[in-house]
Write a protein that binds this DNA or RNA. Structure first.
Length: 349
DNA sequence: AAGCCGGGGAC
DNA sequence: GTCCCAGGCTT
């Protein structure tokens, strides 16, 4: 694969005419603001991120506000975005930045990569966009553009292919306008060189694109070999006390929905029986709510929600793991989306 | 190298 | 329904 000349010039000229320049994180391109946007945008589309970004920036305008916030509050701002480890890593890195690095991002790519949740591509995006450093990114957009431009016929998931793509990405990164170039490549992939229906006739590098020359540009990059995903089942219990409050359970910090407040669950035995035995209480007024399916990238989850209350004479005390909340209070917490889906209709009852 | 980690938009 | 997105971390 031989890089061509003028690649960056053509991409930058196109960017000047057609690129996006009014996104919220493009206003005041500080390392902090770019960092937050890059993390939110990992595996998440721009339109989804915008409202989250606005609210996050209002609550945590700089790295010190973020570092000082309780983890629960950071997770609450992430509720609904998914990949919650991103939020915990963000918080962890903010503490390091604020307490050990004087609130300033390291100057080198390697230094930035040492922060939790920041890999080579995200570090390069931060440094190029906020400081105009000559550091190339390789995200999904760039992989698609380069995979097509050079008609690379091996899967980008393979280390060898990825290495070759990094080399191309670096070779095309210009010495000037580095930040604009990074943004331009993202825009090219997001608006023209899209997964399906790429607008090749509007593309600034169509003349030398080997995928277009092949006649079937969407054959590139090579798709990942797909496999079927399993289905799992769980019962969730909305348990109310005489005050009408709901019992929530804090999830472990690792694994699915890490660190979020969720409902008591049981996979193997009846959720009511499991709960009665766990807390030595009697459950009454049991009703089954509508069962539904929630799909993750790696499995389907069949959820059967139950609504019940504990006997008036019983009590369940609070600790770090279990806590009673009014329905209204739960809405402000970091909740998994299915739990929010179960609790929301109960609000107006 | 492969699995894990969410949610939603596009089709 | 399927695919996959401004990836990184863990094993």
């Amino acid at each position: 694969m031989q890089p061509i000349d003028n690649f960056a010039d053509r991409v930058l000229t196109w960017f000047d005419q057609h690129g996006r320049k009014d996104l919220p994180w493009q206003m005041d391109k500080t390392p902090y603001r770019v960092w937050i946007s890059e993390i939110m945008l990992q595996q998440t589309q721009v339109v989804t991120v915008i409202p989250y970004y606005q609210k996050f920036m209002t609550s945590f305008p700089d790295v010190y506000h973020l570092a000082d916030a309780p983890e629960d509050e950071v997770l609450a701002h992430w509720s609904g975005l998914g990949y919650y480890a991103r939020a915990r890593n963000l918080h962890k890195a903010a503490k390091v930045l604020a307490n050990e690095l004087d609130g300033t991002f390291p100057a080198s790519l390697e230094g930035v990569c040492e922060l939790s949740g920041i890999g080579r591509s995200t570090a390069a995006a931060i440094l190029s966009i906020s400081r105009n450093e000559q550091t190339a990114i390789l995200d999904g957009n760039v992989k698609r553009v380069l995979g097509r431009f050079h008609a690379i016929d091996t899967w980008p998931g393979e280390k060898k292919t990825e290495n070759a793509m990094w080399e191309l990405a670096e070779s095309y990164m210009p010495a000037k306008r580095c930040g604009d170039y990074t943004q331009a490549m993202m825009d090219l992939g997001a608006t023209l060189c899209t997964r399906s229906k790429p607008q090749c006739l509007l593309c600034p590098i169509q003349d030398d694109c080997q995928a277009l020359a092949s006649g079937t540009p969407t054959d590139y990059p090579i798709k990942k070999p797909k496999k079927s995903i399993p289905t799992r089942q769980t019962d969730m219990l909305v348990l109310q006390n005489p005050d009408g409050k709901v019992l929530l359970e804090k999830r472990p910090s690792t694994g699915i929905w890490g660190g979020l407040w969720s409902l008591p669950e049981s996979q193997d035995e009846a959720i009511t029986l499991a709960t009665e035995q766990r807390f030595k209480v009697t459950i009454e007024n049991l009703s089954t709510l509508t069962e539904f399916r929630h799909t993750f990238s790696h499995y389907h989850l069949e959820i059967t929600p139950y609504l019940a209350s504990i006997q008036a004479s019983d009590e369940i005390g609070e600790d770090g793991k279990y806590k009673w909340y009014t329905l209204k209070e739960t809405m402000a917490l970091g909740l998994p989306t299915p739990v929010r889906k179960i609790l929301t209709p109960l609000l107006d009852k």
